[in-house]
Design a protein around this nucleic acid. Structure first.
Length: 235
DNA sequence: AATCGTACCAACCGCTGCTAG
DNA sequence: ACTAGCAGCGGTTGGTACGAT
């Protein structure tokens, strides 16, 4: 039997409306089922992605704030490429968004570093000439961490570098209280399996997806960003 | 005005882990 | 205990907007 051709590529406004309607009707589970009943010629996977990354009412649009940027840097240095985990600490931001941001950010930073290094590489007093990154052939390698296998990887940065950043060029921001709570929530999260992986699910008290009492116990706290004065607060 | 390079974002792909049967 | 199906995650790619030349 010839399988119906699945649509790919950008979503139309009509498709968005259709998806939103059926998600509201049946909930945000069983994506294959949703894809089928909605009549959208999309895979369940595609529907889920569209909903999570674009249509969900709890999403925050627009540029990353400096606070968010700093938090991403901090969390990435701690957790590495655990985008979904990082996204959990940035309400309204998706793992995809953070991942994209990081990619752009790192590339830019790598280029800056490269320029700096090029300027100082021939200087006799340059400590760079003694650094391990000197031997790298890759253009971005200067900014890549060394992995547990002693390999460099542009994309997989952070995490294991946590100690390496102590006291050297990585600026340390004072986010003690946030960190304290993140560490506490780490312990909690290690013991409790989250119901949903996306941060937006426990961020949308005014939407159809209100968290219930049980869920709120699992996620006792989350950070919110006050766009007025750019401060974090715990909800 | 045309072309090129870069940044950004949306979406796809492949893999993994979880869970229900 | 095993397996199939599903959900989610991380990596990658492709398209578009925009600024520089």
């Amino acid at each position: 039997m010839a399988q119906e051709e699945m649509r790919k590529g950008p979503w139309t406004e009509q498709e968005d409306l259709q998806l939103a309607f059926y998600v509201n009707l049946f909930g945000d589970r069983r994506w294959d089922f949703l894809a089928k009943v909605s009549g959208l010629r999309r895979t369940g996977k595609s529907c889920r992605l569209r909903w999570v990354n674009y249509l969900h009412p709890g999403l925050k649009r627009g540029k990353m704030t400096p606070q968010e940027e700093r938090l991403i840097l901090e969390l990435h240095s701690k957790w590495g490429n655990r985008w979904s985990k990082i996204a959990m600490k940035l309400p309204g931001r998706t793992d995809n968004e953070i991942k994209n941001y990081w990619r752009t950010h790192m590339r830019k930073k790598a280029q800056d570093e490269r320029k700096k290094n090029k300027a100082s590489i021939f200087s006799p007093s340059s400590s760079f000439s003694n650094s391990s990154s000197f031997s790298s052939n890759s253009p971005d390698a200067d900014f890549m961490p060394i992995t547990e296998n002693n390999e460099r990887n542009f994309y997989d940065t952070g995490g294991i570098l946590e100690k390496k950043n102590e006291g050297d060029k990585m600026k340390v921001y004072s986010m003690d209280e946030i960190w304290k709570d993140i560490e506490e929530s780490d312990q909690t999260m290690n013991n409790i399996k989250p119901i949903m992986s996306s941060p937006i699910w426990n961020y949308c008290p005014n939407t159809l997806w209100m968290i219930d009492e049980e869920e709120s116990k699992m996620f006792p706290q989350f950070y919110c960003l006050d766009n007025q004065d750019n401060t974090f607060f715990v909800g």
